[in-house]
Amino acid sequence: MESINYAGGANMTLPADAQFVQGVSGNALYLPAGFGKVNIAGDRNELTISLWRQWDGVVEADDYRGVFATANIKVYFDQGTDLLTVELEDTKKVTDIKDDQEQTHWCFLFAKNSFFKIYKNAELRAELTAGNDPVDFSEGLKLGGGRTHATFDEFRFYKKVVTEPEIRGLYFLITKGTPVQQLENIIANNTPRYLGVVETVPSTRTAIITKGEKLGAVDANPGDWVLSGKTIGGWKVGVCYKWTGAQWINLEPEVNYAEAYQACLVHMFEIEELKQQTGHYGALFAKVLVAQKAMIDELLVNQAFIKNLVVQKLKIDTDDTTNQDFEAWFDELNGLKIRNKGEEIFKIDTNGDIYIKGATVTANKLIAPTLTEDPQNAVFGEIWFRKGI
Score class of each variant (00 low, 15 high):
1 M>L: 12
7 A>K: 12
10 A>T: 11
18 A>T: 04
22 Q>C: 05
25 S>W: 04
29 L>G: 06
30 Y>A: 05
31 L>W: 09
31 L>S: 07
32 P>K: 09
33 A>R: 13
33 A>T: 10
34 G>T: 03
34 G>H: 02
41 A>C: 02
43 D>F: 05
44 R>C: 00
45 N>S: 08
46 E>T: 13
52 W>L: 07
52 W>V: 06
54 Q>E: 13
55 W>S: 07
71 A>I: 02
72 N>C: 03
73 I>N: 07
76 Y>N: 00
82 D>M: 10
90 D>C: 00
93 K>Y: 14
95 T>K: 08
96 D>N: 14
101 Q>I: 04
105 H>T: 00
106 W>M: 12
117 K>F: 02
117 K>M: 09
120 K>G: 11
122 A>S: 12
128 L>A: 12
128 L>G: 00
137 F>Y: 12
146 G>V: 04
147 R>Y: 15
147 R>W: 12
152 F>S: 03
154 E>R: 14
156 R>S: 13
156 R>I: 14
157 F>M: 10
158 Y>C: 00
159 K>V: 04
160 K>L: 13
162 V>Y: 07
164 E>V: 13
166 E>I: 01
166 E>S: 09
172 F>N: 10
174 I>P: 02
179 P>N: 02
183 L>D: 03
184 E>F: 05
187 I>D: 03
188 A>W: 03
188 A>R: 14
189 N>Y: 00
189 N>W: 00
191 T>V: 10
193 R>D: 04
195 L>Q: 02
196 G>W: 08
197 V>K: 05
199 E>P: 00
200 T>F: 11
204 T>Y: 08
206 T>L: 07
211 K>G: 01
220 A>N: 07
225 W>A: 01
229 G>C: 05
231 T>L: 09
234 G>K: 08
236 K>R: 12
237 V>R: 10
237 V>D: 00
239 V>G: 01
247 Q>V: 08
251 L>R: 06
251 L>H: 06
254 E>Q: 15
260 A>C: 12
261 Y>V: 02
261 Y>H: 03
266 V>D: 14
268 M>L: 10
270 E>K: 13
272 E>R: 14
279 G>S: 13
282 G>C: 09
285 F>Q: 10
288 V>S: 05
291 A>W: 09
291 A>I: 06
295 M>E: 04
299 L>R: 10
299 L>D: 02
301 V>K: 10
302 N>E: 12
307 K>V: 07
313 K>S: 11
320 D>I: 12
320 D>M: 05
324 Q>H: 13
327 E>I: 15
327 E>C: 10
331 D>N: 15
336 L>Q: 06
337 K>D: 03
340 N>V: 14
340 N>Y: 14
343 E>R: 15
346 F>S: 01
352 G>H: 08
353 D>R: 09
354 I>H: 04
359 A>R: 14
361 V>L: 15
362 T>W: 00
368 A>R: 08
369 P>V: 04
383 I>W: 14
389 I>G: 07
